[in-house]
């Protein structure tokens, strides 16, 4: 923590609770995080990230555009047929 440096507000804020994390809890979190770090580095995880981050949104947008285009085309055909 930064020492108060004569700032009265910093001196006050230094009084806020500061109970360090239990070392066992800290180790547990680190273990979980390490496992995630290793998992996320695997090629399958990278592929999944590309799929969910880029490909899936692109497929959904393409579907939406195709559906809109199809709807307009159908409406136009109905309009033309009714004249």
């Amino acid at each position: 923590m930064i020492p108060p440096n004569g700032d009265p507000l910093a001196t006050k804020l230094a009084l806020l609770p500061d109970d360090p994390l239990d070392p066992r809890a800290a180790s547990r979190v680190l273990r979980h995080a390490r496992a995630v770090l290793v998992d996320e580095g695997r090629p399958a995880a990278r592929l999944l990230r590309v799929w969910t981050g880029v490909l899936l949104p692109a497929v959904l947008v393409a579907c939406a555009l195709f559906y809109t285009w199809g709807a307009f085309r159908t409406l136009r055909e109905i309009y033309v047929a009714s004249r």
């Binding site: 979190v29 680190l30 979980h32 995080a33 390490r34 996320e40």
Partner: peptide
């Protein structure tokens, strides 16, 4: 404690 764990898991995911 809950948010601390979430924070580090997210950090590991996006490292």
């Amino acid at each position: 404690e809950d948010l601390f764990q979430d924070t580090w898991l997210a950090a590991a995911r996006h490292a």
